[in-house]
Design a binder for these strands. Structure first.
Length: 197
DNA sequence: TGTCCGATTGGT
DNA sequence: CCAATCGGACAG
């Protein structure tokens, strides 16, 4: 069943762990795509020097992170890739969870077409790849996860969770080494395996 | 207005 | 290891 907005009012770390094993769904004119979330990272708010809201920064780009939990925060990285985040917590708290990898479940041919590759383990094993496979672009900015275009479903599984350091946040001082990346143990669909703590 | 750089990816 | 590629953040 579709997760209600209440789910997203929890803090980012709680939601990041709870999202593992849930199913991300997008629906468009091209079709429906679904994937099991196997990797997430929590960005816990202004005190987190790795977050876009570090120091309470408020800009046109990160404005969605300050909205009430349950909406989408997407941004472009390196001028060419999109990253998908779920906003969490109360309005104004500036937290989000970056969804980094999926295990493709449905609409796999559509994902292959969008990505231009066939290997199922290479369809959504990274934040940019996942957005391409699911058809998520900047038009999803601020969109509600309670709507009919993108949402997350609970399929009743409780996977074993492994915590590790977040990827590519070397600029974040003491926050670089915090264990705020979460993966499903032994999943072959995660983005990078060499950084596991 | 100008400069710097990234919550990445894919090819050497 | 390294280039691609450009919007956004920030200094001036």
């Amino acid at each position: 069943m579709k997760l209600s907005l209440d789910f997203y009012k929890n803090d980012a770390e709680t939601v990041a762990k709870a999202l593992l094993g849930k199913v991300l769904v997008t629906k468009s004119g091209e079709g429906v795509t679904k994937g099991v979330i196997v990797e997430t990272e929590a960005y816990i708010g202004p005190e987190d020097l790795a977050a876009h809201t570090a120091g309470g920064r408020r800009t046109a780009r990160n404005e969605a992170m300050y909205r009430p939990g349950g909406c989408v925060y997407v941004y472009t990285i390196y001028g060419m890739h999109t990253c998908f985040n779920v906003v969490t917590g109360e309005e104004g708290s500036g937290q989000a969870v970056l969804v980094r990898a999926l295990e493709p479940l449905e609409g796999i041919e559509l994902m292959r077409k969008r990505r231009g590759v066939s290997d199922i383990k290479n369809l959504a094993s990274g934040p940019g790849k996942l957005c391409a496979a699911m058809g998520i672009d900047k038009s999803f900015y601020g969109e509600s996860l309670a709507g009919s275009r993108i949402w997350i479903e609970d399929i009743g599984t409780s996977p074993e969770i492994v915590a590790s350091k977040r990827i590519n946040v070397d600029y974040a001082g003491e926050w670089t080494d915090k264990l705020l990346r979460f993966t499903i143990k032994d999943s072959p669909f995660v983005s990078v395996r060499r950084f596991m703590v």
